[in-house]
Amino acid sequence: MSGIGDRFLAVFIGTVLLISILATQAAAKKLNVVTATTDMAALAQEVGGDRITVESIAKGYQDPHFVEAKPSFLLKLQKADLLIIVGLQLEIGWLPPLITQSGNPRIQVSAPGYLDASQFAEILEIPTGVVTRAMGDVHPLGNPHYWLDPDNGRRVARGIAQKLGELDPADNAYFQERFQDFDKRLTAAEQKWDAEMAPYHGRKLVTYHNSFTNFAKHFHLNVIGYVEPRPGIPPTPSHTIELIGLMKRENCKLVLVEPYFDLKTPNSIGAATGAKVVVYLPSVGGEKQVTNYFDLFDYDIALLTKAFESAQ
């Protein structure tokens, strides 16, 4: 090698090295937690308290299956001590390249700072047998929207607390205490939610995407169909007609729509069946006032009870 280009390269590499060394300075004392979604962030915040900083990559009103892998997310991942993902391939369309490019060995898949929260939760709709694309796009390992069951919230929080304790043993007792406190508050809240939902056990409803299974199981609701013909596949006219027929036969009067879907098809279904179309929140942060895990259930249960009541 010789010439201007080589000198250019040498200077370039030298500069990068120098800046890198300068930049690798004392890390903050708080554990830096980055989560794929706001719900994981909310649960981490519950148990991590003021000993961690936590930030979510996806916004609460965004489709978590289809997040753009923006380079700005790398700035967060680069400094993370812990990355918490929802798992079950929810983030597979965008997170893997971010992890690879982050230049952060702590959060690489299977490193101590990589936590797949799905291992703690009760997972429904795990496909048995061969999975093909004909079954849809986005839930090949089971339903990844498991955080909508408060019991799973508790389980995930316990798992996160344990992980935080492993990464920061000095604060382990603190995290365990925070978890106990969260557990207590959640149990109390669950009693309230269960009571509010009790009159509506067995009520039938339709959701746009298959994101409501765990919620429906916990609160004894009956999801009879989806606006999407298969998870991740946009509505088709024939499926919509079928769904309208089903809803009429079953006397189903509620369509729940995630905030990131177009309301055109749900509204036409509503018009054809007399069902109410309601935008529900699958995630913390879906609306400004929904800032934590408790708010999420408060908000959705208020929506549901109101909708069921008015449908009587």
């Binding site: 299956h65 798992g87 391939q89 597979i92 898949v109 799905s118 291992q119 090949p140 992980k163």
Partner: peptide, 22 residues
């Protein structure tokens, strides 16, 4: 702590005509 995604990461069954290489 490396469940599903571990072996999967590259496997990505989602989208796009084709694997964009990382």
């Amino acid at each position: 702590s490396a469940p599903q995604t571990a072996a999967q990461v590259p496997a990505n069954p989602p989208i796009i005509p084709a694997q964009p290489s990382p």
